[in-house]
């Protein structure tokens, strides 16, 4: 009798434990950097879209995107924020990563080449013999500034490229340690207000106006083993995207971005926000791949269509 009762209790416990476990949210570890393009992800977290999909997003913020892919391969992250050049390099080196989702458009209007005012730097041709700052050599910023120099009559071989972190570029420029810098949004805004500096050009506009530099990546191995989790992640992210699109120019978006980037809200209000791209664009990725090949950044050929995750 006691044995039967114990059996019933055990059976009940097993039956109960299944729904209990199912109710526990699954965790996804996502590497992020403090950039405004991640606003849809943060909106999804803030407004509970991921929770509603049974997902707990464990954010792993890093200061730069450099550790995103190594962290992904090493298993520290499930999904990493990275860029198109790093993703293509990874695939060419046999690291099987896939691009999961598009980001807000408008990279072409946010990143600019800046220089000291009155020194006559207007095009790539004016940079012959000069020094240009990039955040990382042989990565996305370096690649596109070189192409911009070429397109505007210059020769990248005659330009010295120096690695300087984005926050230090303006000071380096003013102290004449460099002659121009390819900068990201917040610092472009700061440079625009500085009487000693001027915005020379928005290189993406001239090289590849529809470029999609930012990506969410995951390894194919992870995606195949966690198809349901990835689908739920993308579903919640889509709602975050919709929220983002609906709040462009509104206070809620400004305060959300100020909150996670820790930027002063006054600066955030000056940023240009564009709607989220409808899809990861293979044609744009092909253009990036071809540029990389020309600069010798890709040794192996990459089929970009296979890199884009299709649900």
């Amino acid at each position: 009798m006691f044995v039967v009762a114990r059996g019933i209790v055990c059976a009940l416990l097993i039956v109960c434990s299944v729904p209990c476990r199912a109710a526990e949210p699954a965790t996804l570890r996502v590497s992020v950097i403090p950039t405004s393009v991640l606003a849809p992800l943060y909106a999804g977290i803030k407004y509970g879209y991921f929770k509603e999909e049974g997902l707990n997003i464990d954010l792993a913020p890093t200061a730069g995107g450099a550790i995103g892919i190594p962290g992904l391969v090493g298993g520290s992250y499930d999904i990493a924020f990275s860029n198109n050049v790093s993703a293509l390099s990874a695939v060419a080196q046999g690291i099987d990563v896939q691009l999961l989702a598009p980001f807000p458009e408008g990279a072409a209007d946010e990143t600019a080449v800046i220089a000291r005012k009155g020194e006559g730097i207007k095009t790539g041709r004016d940079l012959a013999g000069k020094t240009v700052a990039v955040n990382t050599n042989r990565n996305v910023i370096w690649l596109y500034v070189r192409e911009w120099i070429r397109k505007t009559g210059g020769d990248p071989a005659q330009v010295t490229f120096r690695e300087v972190a984005f926050p230090q570029m303006i000071d380096a420029l003013k102290q004449k340690q460099i002659d121009a810098a390819f900068q990201i949004n917040v610092f472009v805004i700061a440079a625009g207000k500085d009487p000693a500096l001027e915005i020379v050009s928005f290189p993406y506009r001239e090289v590849q106006p529809k470029v999609q530099p930012s990506q969410f990546l995951a390894t194919r191995k992870f995606i195949e083993g966690n198809k349901d989790k990835v689908a739920r992640f993308l579903k919640a992210l889509k709602r975050g995207n919709e929220w983002f699109d609906a709040h462009i120019g509104k206070d809620e978006l400004f305060s959300l971005v100020a909150e996670f980037t820790k930027l002063p809200e006054a600066v955030v209000r000056e940023m240009k926000f564009q709607p989220v791209a409808k899809k990861v664009d293979a044609d744009e990725l092909e253009k990036t791949r071809d540029l990389m090949k020309r600069e010798g950044l890709l040794k192996a050929d990459v089929d970009v269509k296979k890199m884009i995750y299709a649900e």
Partner: peptide
């Protein structure tokens, strides 16, 4: 870093 003073230093540089 995801936390700690080293991460904070870089984060504050980007946050102006």
């Amino acid at each position: 870093g995801s936390s700690g003073i080293g991460y904070y230093l870089v984060e504050m540089q980007y946050a102006l």
